[in-house]
């Protein structure tokens, strides 16, 4: 069953067309890797899926999420409907405590689903379990959101939030960039641990190395604002050997 359907998506920023007829379908339980050189529109795509309004979407574009017009939905409505974006550059929230933030976002989701807010102790226990899983230091829970976090710590924190929120569709925007091998494994384990035959994932990456730990069902090559090639994980291996020269680059 299709979770996300992108059809002929065209988008501009300041009169420059960045996405030029991008189409992709992500079915339930599928992991798609989207690869491509810098400046080809990968992050623009992620931003548009999350609801970033800096882009102008051109007519004729269509994005359906669970059959609904995603482009008409508010940012938070998308999140509450189960879309999670792991940011390439997660924001720092000065003065906002980690536990406060995590509790707020978990409870926003629970309230939306008509559930009771999470019991405080149960919540703390769950967060501590996940903190261990993603290899963060528990002491970081006493800090403010992403303030003074290293690149790796920020990404572990993104994975922690993803696991807490249990989204239906994960969009990872170059989550692997700038990570050492340990952090990379955490990201991959986080994703693998959440593969359950239901959840869809779109993993945007510049490098092939993440895909060694995280076997995608499909690999797509994006050049010049659209997908130019698709295949299975062997496509990623070929890209590692030959780069993007087959695509005229």
């Amino acid at each position: 069953m299709t979770l996300l359907k992108i059809e002929n998506l065209r988008a501009c920023i300041e009169d420059t067309e960045i996405l030029k007829g991008f189409s992709l379908e992500v079915g339930k339980g599928e992991v798609h890797a989207l690869m491509g050189p810098n400046g080809t529109g990968k992050s623009t795509l992620a931003g548009i899926l999350a609801g970033n309004e800096d882009y102008e979407i051109l007519e004729g574009s269509e994005v359906l999420y669970e059959g609904e017009d995603l482009l008409e939905m508010e940012v938070e409505a998308r999140a509450l409907a189960g879309i999670f974006m792991a940011f390439q550059y997660p924001s720092v929230l000065p003065g906002v405590g980690m536990m406060t933030f995590l509790r707020e976002i978990v409870n926003a989701k629970r309230v939306h689903e008509g559930k009771e807010v999470m019991d405080r102790l149960a919540f703390v226990k769950e967060v501590k379990r996940l903190v261990g899983f993603v290899g963060m230091d528990e002491k970081m829970l006493k800090r403010t959101v992403n303030e003074g976090f290293s690149g790796g710590e920020k990404k572990r924190h993104e994975i922690l939030q993803m696991m807490l929120l249990e989204p239906k569709l994960v969009v990872m925007d170059e989550t692997d960039s700038g990570l050492d091998i340990d952090a990379l494994k955490v990201v991959a384990e986080g994703v693998n641990g959440m593969r359950d035959g239901e959840r869809g994932m779109l993993v945007i990456t510049h490098y092939q190395r993440l895909l060694r730990y995280l076997e995608p069902d499909y690999v797509h090559v994006m050049v010049g604002g659209k997908i130019v090639d698709s295949g299975d994980k062997r496509l990623a291996e070929r890209l590692e050997e030959r780069g993007y020269e087959d695509y005229g680059l």
């Binding site: 999350a50 609801g51 970033n52 508010e74 940012v75 938070e76 998308r78 999140a79 509450l80 999670f84 974006m85 940011f87 997660p90 924001s91 929230l93 707020e104 976002i105 926003a108 989701k109 939306h112 939030q161 929120l165």
Partner: peptide, 9 residues
């Protein structure tokens, strides 16, 4: 945007 992407209005 970061907060709203996590479901906060």
């Amino acid at each position: 945007f970061y907060c709203r992407q996590r479901g906060l209005d």
